[in-house]
Amino acid sequence: MLEILNLQGYGSLLIKGAKLTVLVGLSSMVIAILLGLVGAWGKLARSRPANIAAGAYTTIVRGVPELVLILLVYYGAPTLIQDIAALMEIDLYVDLNPLVAGMCTIGFIYGAFSTEVFRGAFLAVDKGQVEAARSVGMGRVLCFRRILLPQMWRFALPGLGNVWMVLIKATALISVIQLPELMRNSDIAARATRLPFTCYFLASLIYLAITIVSLVGQKQLENWANKGVRKA
């Protein structure tokens, strides 16, 4: 069994890939949450331009495959910038860091899904509490910080948990930009050892382990968010 897990010396490569996968996933999730909050504000704001911008963001991003967006950002964007610079007679070379490009693209993609999660969570908060807060003189910002934001999380966490589960699996797509995450390193190990089934099966078990740990963590967060809430 130990010899199988070692994969002729390539077992450590899968572990390194798993660590990078978790790093990319967590970083992307932070970006997705921040963009989701901004997007939800845009959708719920009274400003029509904000409504249009947020609606366009969620519609376009959710309508284009993740792989296409990753390739567009990593390979297409530098070429476009260089072509524009050439038209202005500027000698420019753009080389994106695959780690930064992967994290930002995945975060940008799932920020659109987080937007809808947060929008629903904000709408689920009892409007009576908001009206009561405004009636005692609370401004919009103070009402958001003390009333909406703390209560919104208990409605948002289940949806954000689903976003995380999909996001962590979507990190496998950034193997196409040569980032040595779990899927990329599994492919390298499979080709070197000629044990494709073993390598990919172990990779699937690692993804499953990450998912199980995530479920436990999500449950703990939901319990924390629901403290003091009377269950029907």
Score class of each variant (00 low, 15 high):
Leu2Trp: 12
Glu3Leu: 11
Ser12Gly: 13
Ala18Pro: 00
Leu23Thr: 11
Gly25Glu: 02
Ile33Val: 15
Leu34Ile: 14
Gly36Asp: 01
Val38Trp: 05
Ala40Pro: 00
Lys43Ala: 04
Ser47Gly: 06
Arg48Gly: 03
Asn51Val: 04
Gly55Cys: 03
Thr58Trp: 05
Val64Lys: 09
Pro65Phe: 00
Pro65Arg: 05
Tyr75Val: 12
Gly76Tyr: 06
Asp83His: 14
Asp95His: 12
Pro98Ile: 09
Leu99Lys: 08
Ala101Cys: 11
Tyr110Gly: 02
Tyr110Lys: 02
Gly111Ala: 08
Glu116Arg: 08
Glu116Gln: 07
Glu116Ile: 08
Phe118Tyr: 11
Ala121Asp: 01
Lys127Gly: 09
Val130Cys: 05
Glu131Gln: 14
Arg134Ile: 09
Val136Cys: 10
Gly137Met: 06
Gly137Val: 02
Met138Val: 04
Gly139Leu: 01
Val141Tyr: 11
Arg146Asp: 06
Gln151Gly: 03
Met152Gln: 06
Gly159Pro: 05
Asn162Phe: 11
Glu181Thr: 00
Asn185Phe: 00
Ser186Val: 00
Ser186His: 03
Ala189Thr: 10
Ala190Met: 02
Thr193His: 08
Leu195Thr: 15
Leu202Val: 12
Leu205Cys: 13
Ile210Phe: 13
Ile212His: 11
Val213Leu: 12
Ser214Lys: 04
Gly217Trp: 08
Gln218Tyr: 08
Gln220Asn: 08
Glu222Ser: 08
Gly228Arg: 05
Val229Met: 07
